[in-house]
Design a protein around this nucleic acid. Sequence first.
DNA 1: GCATGGTGTTTTGTATACAATAAGGCCCGA
DNA 2: TCGGGCCTTATTGTATACAAAACACCATGC
Lengths: 224, 224
Amino acid sequence: MPGSASKKAAASKAADRAYAEIRSLILAGDASPGTPLREEALADIVGVSRTPIRDALRRLEAEHYAFRTPGGRLVVAEWDVDDVAEMFALRAMLEGHAAARAAQRITAAQLDSLRQCNAAIEAAIAQPTPDIARFLGENRRFHDLVLNASASARLVAMLASLVEQPIVRRTATRYDRADLARSAHEHGQLIQAFAAHDEEWARAIMTAHIRRALHAFQDASPSK
Amino acid sequence: MPGSASKKAAASKAADRAYAEIRSLILAGDASPGTPLREEALADIVGVSRTPIRDALRRLEAEHYAFRTPGGRLVVAEWDVDDVAEMFALRAMLEGHAAARAAQRITAAQLDSLRQCNAAIEAAIAQPTPDIARFLGENRRFHDLVLNASASARLVAMLASLVEQPIVRRTATRYDRADLARSAHEHGQLIQAFAAHDEEWARAIMTAHIRRALHAFQDASPSK
DNA sequence: GCATGGTGTTTTGTATACAATAAGGCCCGA
DNA sequence: TCGGGCCTTATTGTATACAAAACACCATGC
């Protein structure tokens, strides 16, 4: 019923399939950073003509999954440590802002959804071996719910290009059980702040929540 | 030499012309909020085929100049007071962040450019009747220079959709001489903060600078 | 050896034709 | 008079053909 806050308004069938397919190629690492994204080759892979491929590539470019060389060629973007830190910093600011807005606007029903979602997260963690995939899915859903409660289409769009990057995935994969539990605990505090409609409390918790993720990533990161 | 920080990588000739032309239609108010943007009609106006028009419209959609109806139609977006406040809030956060980054990274040459730019702004104000157009151009350039000094392509892209909206223009048009002088003074303080490489000082001034603009807009705003 | 210019190939940009789908009107029945 | 289901038409989505531009390569001259 809530759908996904980050899904763009579905326009067409082929262009959407192309977008999803190319994006998953990038996220899965099948198209590693620096790989050129040639329209005709992608058209063959996806099984559509170049026209919807071009649409999809424009979207991916706008979301910084790829960038354009001085000529017109598109290549898969790569993120160095500074980029990643910057992305987390922006996410912390914007999601903190979203949390503050949500605290003012959230409804009882939305609060319930958040509680149920976090319960699912805790269930995923509680298993003998934590269910990381389920954790990721529900975690994403939790943040989407907050974003929806913030009621700002602009925020939703801006964060779309920040949240689903491979980095988020890699970070959570490195989490041990204590990290996962801490994450769920922070969600719980966030729910309290929402229930109290205390926007600055919500902002602070969300900011801390994401900045902790940054440092978890940096600690797990190999070098530099 | 600095170009404009908000210009996207020029891809093609016709698509860029289409983008610029359609956008100026929107900004000038010739296409008022709610007006449908039909591809073929625009193709006739610009004098190119639908293909580059579609490219241009996708960009405008991504930058929230237009939005898509439940069907696939694009219409010119409109901004109510809440939207405007939200835009200013986001701008304040993001440009504050840019200023903080710039304070850490700025070079002597970049500082000189900023000083020259603000001198031009003061000159524009000092005239018997302040030269608003010149003020706007140089003001835009000042903020672009700061953005460049922040050295974050992501920030530049995110702010692009926030800064050139009609609201900014309308706001400055309402400024009286004292407002304009205050703006220039704040720029001067920002330069001091940059020279001292004090990132939190820079962030605070930039945040205040933009939030003041928000309230200037709201005060000048007719109703509600 | 190195720069330089030209040429062929690859890749993207644009135009156009056609298909699919959504919007709006019309008729009909209750 | 209102509502619901077709049917027409307007509008977007997709495919394909062609044009323009960029790249790579090689040859050529110094």
